[in-house]
């Protein structure tokens, strides 16, 4: 699959001397939904803002569909729509005026039918003549999405699009993002809701301290790093793990009433059969078994902890 955005050795040092990005290399594939995860201050917004032309890079390069973002900024930016992290709106304008302005400033001729389609898609049509200051926070965020889509971009950046948005609306936005992807738009989103990335993304990148620490297909990431846990409930509590079980990765759980076995679900041998045999030989009575797949959230927390 071909890349639509290529980021090479991109670094940013702010005027304060703070190194927000330390040599980012990243390819975004055409048509994918890419989720960028990372704790507060990791550099997500800085990275997005450099690509969109809001922050000057210190070194390195970015190309968007082959166009360098500095030398060939017109061609690069014409392809991009941005929904910024901060809710910045023209309070006194109407929804219709502000969305039409977005189309114009991106150099596209007026197209009321298209704007109508976008507003309807985002359930904003009945608000088209309302002044933005009369809208709720969630509606304002949808107005920002409508503005970003007004010029029919091929790439959409969503910097925490669902922050402060209720569950129902969030699902509505996911739907819109999926529709974008079906229409061939590449979507790059940042989020602090891991379930959002888990739900939406094709690939996931984790950034921490200005460095990309992992980029992986979502499914692959979960398979590779996702550990499975087997909870073995015992008939009678034990105070310590019997010596015969010493070479199994086990820990006591639930005050000795259970054993927790961690294994790699992908491996040829999970070791479960041996373990159960050993348990029986040791005379421990097993009353119940349950397995649990570690979530993306667990993986994320582990990754960030390891890298700092």
């Amino acid at each position: 699959m071909s890349s639509i955005i290529t980021i090479s050795a991109l670094a940013k040092t702010y005027a304060s001397g703070f190194r927000a990005l330390k040599g980012i290399n990243l390819d975004i594939r055409r048509g994918e939904i890419f989720a960028l995860l990372g704790p507060n201050g990791a550099g997500k917004t800085t990275l997005i803002n450099i690509i969109c032309g809001l922050v000057n890079p210190s070194s390195g390069s970015v190309t968007v569909d082959g166009h360098d973002i500095l030398r060939d900024y017109r061609a690069a930016r014409a392809l991009i729509g941005l929904v910024p992290q901060e809710l910045a709106t023209d309070m006194f304008e109407t929804v219709w005026a502000t969305v039409s302005f977005s189309r114009g400033i991106n150099g596209r001729k007026a197209n009321p039918a298209y704007i109508e389609k976008v507003l309807r898609q985002l359930s904003l049509w009945d608000k088209k003549d309302a002044k933005i200051m009369t809208l709720s926070g969630g509606m304002k965020r949808r107005v920002l999405i409508a503005k970003a889509l007004a010029h029919e971009p091929r790439i959409l950046f969503l910097d925490e699009p669902t922050a402060g948005v209720d569950v129902e609306l969030r699902r509505g936005m996911w739907q819109v993002v999926r529709e974008m992807r079906e229409a061939g738009v590449t979507v790059i989103l940042t989020t602090h809701y891991i379930e959002e990335a888990e739900e939406m993304a094709d690939r996931i990148g984790v950034i921490n301290g200005g460095e990309i620490i992992v980029v992986e297909e979502k499914a692959e990431l979960m398979r590779k790093l996702g550990k499975k846990e087997l909870m073995i409930r015992l008939g009678a509590p034990i105070s310590e793990i019997p010596a015969v079980l010493a070479n199994h990765p086990l820990s006591l759980a639930d005050e000795g009433r259970a054993l927790l076995y961690t294994y790699d679900a992908r491996a040829e041998r999970t070791g479960i059969t041996t373990l159960l045999n050993t348990l029986r030989d040791a005379g421990l009575m097993v009353t119940d078994l349950e397995t649990r797949q570690s979530s993306l959230e667990d993986i994320f927390v582990d990754l960030v902890r390891q890298s700092t």
């Binding site: 809001l54 930016r77 400033i105």
Partner: peptide, 15 residues
């Protein structure tokens, strides 16, 4: 637009 933050749109436009 600098004050409200809407300047992001001007600065990120192909202009």
């Amino acid at each position: 637009p600098r004050f409200t933050g809407t300047i992001y749109e001007i600065l990120s436009a192909p202009i």
